[in-house]
Design a protein around this nucleic acid. Structure first.
Lengths: 209, 209
DNA sequence: TAGATTGTTAATCGATTAACAATC
DNA sequence: TAGATTGTTAATCGATTAACAATC
């Protein structure tokens, strides 16, 4: 296997992607690491180092072609493929994520929600059906599912994560406020801990005073 | 001023807080850095280093008192005070955040939502009123507001952020997919970039295959 | 007191920045 | 060709881990 690229680098890639998208919208054709560094408030050195983890996308004396680099970073991030997402837990957060249409622009397609609440049976979120949890297994056998977004209370999250692994799901986008211990599986987990984020903000408020 | 504590350390504090909360629920009275390190899958060294940024909370030969350490970290994170939060943008995400009752356990109180959509006028989210955007200034003059959660489309986020700064708000919890450039102000910004998180997940899926 | 475990200093590791030769 | 700017190596900085003396 090629040498592992650090998550610190990976975390910055979506940000590059976003700035390049903005440059495209502005009609900018090429940009140097130095100009980009001014915009993004990072060092030009870091930009060149980061990009060169994945290959030489620039040209000496010229800089980087914006469209080309945008597309390449898109490929690196897997945005050239579509990813089907199911949402486990059709509460407020689950529905909000489902409604966040922006994701589809990047190839993330919401295909179904699942919940235990019988009141939600047969309902939908902007056309995306809500199923009962006992239909999950059949659904996963029938349809291609790439990512499961987990928006359950933490008490139920661990158990559900196990089930999802058994059903062959490869990636979990975890909104439950708990660490999923799935190290024995091959599943990729990405955590969104909103409480943690809020606490960090709170710390910085206090510090600032 | 005391020496600055790195954000890497701060980011880990909410996780310590969560594990200590779980230990409390289990009725555990004391814990050593080594036992905690086993649970959290970090090094004992890191735990001791992190904590000692803020003071000596442990006792040689004994370890750490769980309740005491929990309370101290709570204070460090500012969770001993309440924070009033207003939500700018009462769309799905704004409403989902408002409904996320869990936050209140940590002293974060949702007090109002604001939107431009006249259909929402006079409505509420579990008793929390939705106001029109033109009432924002009066509201901020009248009520204590600690944090503004920003759930607007990115086109409107920057302008709104400026306005919030002018209205004297000190902290912004930013869900808009844009970097707010508020370096000239004293405002604390914490970003939640859901798209970035999803892209990072996507990268790791591709890598894993 | 002896054993346990912290607080803290020193060593290591990895990530960021600087420098510059290669090259378009 | 000369100027610009990359790709990449070397230097620096900061964060993590290891080690151990202090002490409960």
């Amino acid at each position: 296997m090629e040498k592992e690229i650090s998550q610190a680098v990976i975390r910055r890639m979506p940000r590059y992607y976003r700035y390049l998208g903005e440059l495209l919208e502005e009609g900018v054709e090429r940009i140097s690491s130095s100009d980009l560094s001014n915009r993004m408030k990072v060092t030009a050195s870091q930009i060149r180092q980061d990009l060169n983890n994945f290959g030489g996308f620039g040209q000496q004396g010229y800089g980087y072609n914006v469209q080309f680099l945008y597309d390449e970073i898109g490929k690196i991030l897997g945005l050239d493929k579509t990813h089907n997402i199911i949402v486990i837990g059709a509460g407020n957060l689950g529905q909000a994520i489902t409604n966040y249409v922006k994701f589809e622009k990047f190839g993330f397609i919401m295909t179904a929600l699942f919940d235990v609440n019988p009141k939600l049976k047969g309902r939908d979120v902007r056309g995306i059906p809500i199923y009962m949890m006992d239909e999950l297994e059949d659904y996963c056998a029938r349809e291609k599912v790439d990512i499961a977004a987990l928006t359950l209370p933490k008490e139920k999250a661990e158990e559900m994560a196990r089930l999802l692994v058994d059903l062959g799901i490869h990636a979990i986008w975890n909104f439950a406020h708990v660490d999923l211990d799935l190290r024995d599986s091959q599943v990729v987990v990405e955590n969104v801990h909103l409480s943690d984020s809020l606490m960090q903000l709170s710390y910085n408020i206090v510090k600032n005073q």
